[in-house]
Write a protein that binds this DNA or RNA. Structure first.
Lengths: 209, 209
DNA sequence: GTTTTTGCACTGACCAGTCAGTTCAAATTC
DNA sequence: GAATTTGAACTGACTGGTCAGTGCAAAAAC
């Protein structure tokens, strides 16, 4: 019988194997980088034979590309959900940004290895998955840009802000603060980190109160 | 990275060769990553024989470690210089942060490949140069932390800010905005980027004016 | 005459990708 | 319902190529 896989459920044996391979690959590549990670290692960590990797993915880099798409899909969904929830609850646009900061932190808290690997690869050039990465980056940044644009239209943010640069900067703020948190101050709570970033977002560090 | 002939007294022939090797290695590793870059490539790009690489550096990873130390040295010197210049000119602490943001942007504008490579390696674990990276990171972040601490002591910043988290976030803001700028919007001017980050720093995006 | 660089052949480990063969649960047949 | 067939999923030994690092005699630079 054909595997059919019901489009979303993915409860086939194959899907389970792919999932195990994603999990094994994400930590190894985050720790060592793509080129330093061998297919044998990935297979071993996943508890699977090397041939199975090639049965499920055309090549090492295809495995990696699909892993990237998979992960960023989760992230954007989570960001968008946070923005929409705020909207629904009648919050302002700053509230939406703040909710997205928190959603970003929760994501990184849950998938630190993925985030690490994403950052490590994003600004490289000359790699085969370059285009995948660009698409995937744009998806994530666009969510932030949309909120900023709406905020300007609603008169809540200054008209002079540069949407794309500000979005980049906000993403960077969250990304780097969260990675530093996970790597060097893992004892801090998510709320601490969120509070610090909130304060910065709302200009409560300098200037006004 | 730069000619440095007069800088630290190292104007020997050997020093010139090492410099050429740094320059070759930094771009190649930024593009491809450490493991994917071969010693033969580095030698070829530097216009030098492979044996020369090993005459000047004990191994491929030692070359890389010394490259890291070299680059971050330049960065911290530049940040500290910016902070001190502001001090001397009687500027406030926000002015000092702002000057450091600009110094960071100027650095990244000049050495984009180094920045790229630094970010790609910083949060990895299990690598031989891990400890070098930690030291070097701390040097850079400490400069920002010092200014924040002074600002709090002088009553210019809220006492409630979390020094280390805020410093991380500020560094991240500059790093990511600048890398996105160089990679995806290279036509923008440094002043544009600086203006956008300044606005964010001073909370002129949301909340207050 | 010492330091540095060159050119190049060589080695041994390592690794991406292949392929002939195995496993096993579900489908089919009798 | 026992015997047989099917095929997707998986296995792991093997191959062909790559690359870090070595060794060394001769040339060049200082």
């Amino acid at each position: 019988m054909e595997s059919s896989s019901a489009a979303s459920g993915g409860s086939t044996r194959r899907e389970a194997t792919r999932q195990k391979l994603y999990e094994a690959a994400v930590t190894l590549i985050a720790e060592q980088g793509f080129s330093a990670t061998t297919v044998d290692e990935i297979a071993e960590r996943a508890g699977v034979a090397k041939g199975t990797v090639y049965y499920n993915f055309a090549s090492k880099s295809v495995l990696f590309e699909e892993l990237l798409r998979h992960g960023v899909g989760l992230l954007t969904a989570s960001l968008r959900e946070a923005a929409e929830r705020t909207e629904r609850e009648g919050g302002s646009k700053v509230d939406a940004l703040d909710a997205m900061i928190r959603a970003g932190l929760v994501f990184i808290d849950r998938y630190p290895a993925f985030t690490q690997l994403y950052v490590a690869e994003l600004w490289r050039t000359n790699r085969t998955w370059q285009s995948t990465l660009m698409v995937v980056r744009q998806q994530a940044v666009a969510v932030v840009e949309d909120v900023l644009r709406d905020g300007v239209a609603a008169g809540e943010f200054s008209e002079e802000i540069d949407i794309s640069l500000t979005a980049s900067a906000l993403v960077g703020m969250v990304l780097v603060a969260a990675l530093d948190w996970k790597s060097f101050q893992a004892e801090r709570s998510l709320d601490d980190v969120h509070a610090a970033l909130s304060r910065l977002l709302q200009g409560r560090v300098s200037g006004c109160r």
